[in-house]
Design a protein around this nucleic acid. Structure first.
Lengths: 234, 234
DNA sequence: TGTACATCAGTGAACGCGCGTTCACTGATGTAC
DNA sequence: TGTACATCAGTGAACGCGCGTTCACTGATGTAC
């Protein structure tokens, strides 16, 4: 392995990102299933077999793209409320949810890569689990913060021992202290966000709710209500 | 056109469904993007060019599969509460939501065909809009029935003129009388259902909430609470 | 500083495969008199 | 009921295209003495 301080090392790093960048361009135009190493090589002015110096095969490239996408989405969600007062939990929730949608609309193909139909013949390796969970964690963390600040409305128990146990296990897995009932709302909130964005990207709202902004904002506000998030210090 | 009472007519009808059936088998094994006319022909013991007597091209077959899938899903949802008392709105809601999930888990590829990543290069024609809307209508209709029976909790106004106008337009489009605020909840409920099922099919709950039954039931119950649906005559 | 060797990026040809769609055709089924 | 013609299902060959991956190779970049 050449270090990053040799010309080779720098060229290699550049090429790795060039490949991903071209892959993303293709992804945006044709969808993940049509992602082709030969087309990427063509666009880069390189012979297709040359790519195997950088990625072991097509699946390895897909995995890299998936991990990058999770990381980007997590970062988008996590930084969305940077300008808001830490105690403005409701506004922060809204900002984070909106960031998820904004990212998805800006990068539909990458969103579909994460939450759409599994790519035929591709099986996501373990490495993608951590980055995938980080997205959920970015939303749940806010709820945990609100809980720590005593800013969550007390919710009725979930009323299912199985679910209660699962929720506790997941909270531990995330390393976050969230009351089970609140976590249940947060997780199904992730479902709502993913579902609404999926429907929007799939054109299911065309002719009805387009633009979807108002519907999405209402749904997000509703979720905040269920969590009992207060607007903050005003 | 040979009528349906000639040997040719019957053979033709049979072949049309045989093709779809083989297509569904392939869909289940490889995903929609990999659907191939040649493979279907091979499975049917027919030469690939022969299929063009039945479907103008690959897209036409995809369209037929999509419409069938919407129709099946709608039927599954619509008949899910047939055994329940008409006034047991809450139980009926739960039954209908559960039917959607059950159908999706039984037919994951067909669900993804409807709500997953758009098939590359395929543009859904207008004919699919009606069947797509029918699924939503199957869920909203129950809410409309509850509203007509005075069984919906009065909800606060949605607080957005844009959204209010959209909701009214959609209600008219569906031909259903639903208070705007309740329709907003119902539509975002569709988002929640699609999102949770999408996450489940994508393996996002593995190691956390599997089996997802309890989480799903809780989310559906929560939605019923927001609509204020009563359990019925007890 | 200069030379000998090792590393590795990128080439070009090849393997073996798959696809959608068109076209002229043969032979069986259906229709009209 | 029997014959002449029209319809149409299915054939087989072909067009033109794309793909992932392997392999032996050349030539430039890097390393160790």
């Amino acid at each position: 392995m050449a270090g990053p301080h040799t010309a080779r090392g720098r060229a290699r790093a550049q090429m790795l990102t060039d490949i991903k960048q071209q892959a993303l361009r293709q992804l945006g135009e044709e969808g993940a299933a049509a992602l082709s190493l030969r087309a990427i090589a063509r666009d880069l002015g390189v012979v297709s077999s040359g790519l195997y110096r950088y990625y072991a095969n097509r699946d390895a490239l897909l995995t890299a793209l998936i991990i990058d996408a999770y990381d980007d989405l997590t970062a988008a969600v996590d930084t969305a409320d940077a300008d808001l007062a830490p105690s403005a939990f409701r506004d922060r929730w809204i900002a984070r949810c909106a960031a998820l949608r904004r990212w998805a609309l800006a990068e539909p193909a990458r969103f579909q890569l994460l939450y759409g139909t599994p790519v035929p013949g591709y099986r996501a390796p373990e490495d993608t689990v951590g980055p995938a969970v980080a997205v959920d964690a970015a939303l749940v963390r806010l709820v945990a913060d609100a809980a720590a600040a005593g800013a969550l409305r007390p919710l009725p128990a979930v009323g299912s021992e199985v679910l209660e146990a699962q929720l506790e296990r997941v909270a531990v897995g995330l390393g976050l202290a969230v009351p089970p009932a609140a976590l249940a709302v947060a997780v199904s909130a992730v479902g709502t966000l993913v579902g609404l964005v999926t429907l929007e990207l799939g054109g299911h709202f065309v002719g009805g709710f387009e633009p979807v902004d108002a519907l999405f904002a209402h749904a997000v506000g509703d979720l905040a209500d269920r969590l009992g998030l207060p607007s903050g210090p005003a």
